[in-house]
């Protein structure tokens, strides 16, 4: 099942307002520390290792993620809104897969 992000971004904000953004993505976050119960072999690491958020092309927030982040990684952070525009969110998987999502916000 491909990772499918969930995002909570307000539809509008006043100029200068600081908004809270919440993100959740479906991912097992295989830590690379667990052993296969039958074979005893280490299960290879496969995690989301990077998350980033841009607004109108400018970086707002990003996170380098280690295997200690729980399955279905959740990240909550803030952004200051000075203009209407588009947030772009990116998750990078160990296997090279990049998952992207966008959310628009208007000025109120």
């Amino acid at each position: 099942m491909a990772a499918k992000p969930r995002l909570k971004v307000p539809k509008s904000a006043a100029a200068g307002e600081v908004i809270t953004i919440k993100s959740l993505i479906s991912h097992k976050m295989e830590s690379g520390q667990r052993k296969d119960k039958k074979t005893g072999d280490l299960i290879p690491r496969k995690i989301i290792n990077k998350f980033s958020c841009e607004f109108n092309g400018k970086p707002v927030f990003s996170c380098d993620i280690d295997p200690a982040i729980s399955a279905n990684p959740y990240l909550e952070f803030t952004a200051r809104i000075d203009e209407a525009g588009t947030f772009k969110f990116t998750w990078v998987d160990d296997d090279g897969t990049v998952i992207e999502a966008e959310k628009d916000i208007a000025l109120s």
Partner: peptide
């Protein structure tokens, strides 16, 4: 329901 990780499965 946003913070509830079980909702990922509900959406699926």
């Amino acid at each position: 329901t946003f913070e509830n990780p079980g909702m990922l499965a509900v959406e699926q």
